[in-house]
Design a binder for these strands. Structure first.
Lengths: 140, 140
DNA sequence: TATTAATTTGACGTTTACGTCAAGTTTAAC
DNA sequence: GTTAAACTTGACGTAAACGTCAAATTAATA
C-alpha cells in the first residue's frame, strides 16, 4: 500500500479527446481556451495533457457560459480557484471581483425568479385560450 | 370627459430616441431588432413609432438576453405575448416552446443557486488566506 | 422660409467564440 | 520499421449582435 495517498483521480491527466468527451466541446474549443489563458494543460512533448486544475476550470467555464458571462469575464474569476500561487495584491483584486460577481449572480437569480413567474402566468393565459378554442387538454 | 377610457399610457408611442433612453440601447439596436422581427414599430411617414407592444417586447428581449438566450430564441417566445392574432396551431407550438423554456429557466435557476453557493465558499477560503497574510479585515 | 435637428436606409467594419481545412508531427499498433 | 490514428500549428471562414459612417429625407424651430 502506498504511504503517500496517491489519489489517482486527483492526478489523472486527460488527452484532448478525453476532455472533449468529458465536457462535450470540440478540440478547437479547448485549444482556443488555452490561447485565451483559461486553461493551462501541461505538455508531454508537443501534446497537451489536461490536469485536475483544467477540469475544475472547465467546469467553471461551462457554468459561466450558461449564465451568460463572456470568456473574458470568466477568465478573470478563474484565478479565484488558484489563488495559492499569486501575490496578495492580485488575490485581493480577484476577491473584490468575486464579490461583485456574487451579487450580480444573486441579482440574476432574483430576476430569473420573477421572469419564471411571469412566464408561468402567461402560459396559463395561453392555455386557457387554447382550451376555449377547443383544444384537447391532454395535448397541453 | 372621455366615454372611452383612453389609457394614455397604453396608447402612448415613443420615438426611437425615447426608446433608446428607456432601454439604454442604441437606435441601431432597435432597427436591428425590427429587421429581425422582434419589434414592429408603426410608421408615421418614414419614421418609426414604438407602441406599448414594442415596449413590452423590449422588456422581454432585455430579460432574455440577461439570461443568455439568443435573439432567435427570444423571438420565438415573444409570440407568447401576442397570441391573440395567431392561428391555433401556431399558438400550440409557441405554448409548447414556452413550457420547454420554462423548465430550462427553472433548471438554470437551480444551477445558479449551486454556483452561488460554490462561489460563496470559495470567497470564504480566499478571505481566510488574505487575513492570514495580514490583510486588514476592513478592506474585505 | 431657411436651417437645424432627428431619422432614415444602405453598406461596410468589428468583436466574440468558435468551425474548418491544410500540412506537418508524434505516438501506438502491427 | 512502417503505417494509421491522434495531435499539432497556422490560416482563413463564419454567425451573431451590433457599431460606424455616409448620404438622403423629414420634422421642428427660428
Amino acid at each position: 500500500m502506498n504511504v503517500i495517498p496517491t489519489k489517482s483521480k486527483e492526478h489523472k491527466v486527460n488527452t484532448i479527446t478525453e476532455m472533449c468527451k468529458l465536457f462535450q466541446v470540440s478540440a478547437r474549443t479547448l485549444r482556443f481556451y488555452e490561447s485565451k489563458e483559461l486553461l493551462f494543460p501541461i505538455r508531454k512533448g508537443q501534446h497537451r495533457l489536461f490536469t485536475k486544475s483544467d477540469r475544475g476550470r472547465m467546469k467553471l467555464i461551462m457554468q459561466g457560459k450558461r449564465f451568460g458571462f463572456s470568456l473574458e469575464e470568466i477568465r478573470q474569476l478563474l484565478n479565484l480557484y488558484n489563488f495559492g500561487d499569486h501575490r496578495t495584491r492580485q488575490i485581493k483584486q480577484t476577491y473584490q471581483l468575486g464579490l461583485k460577481r456574487l451579487s450580480s449572480m444573486e441579482e440574476q437569480k432574483k430576476e430569473l425568479g420573477m421572469a419564471i413567474k411571469d412566464l408561468k402566468s402567461q402560459l396559463e393565459l395561453c392555455k386557457d385560450l387554447l382550451l376555449k378554442r377547443g383544444a384537447d387538454s391532454r395535448d397541453l
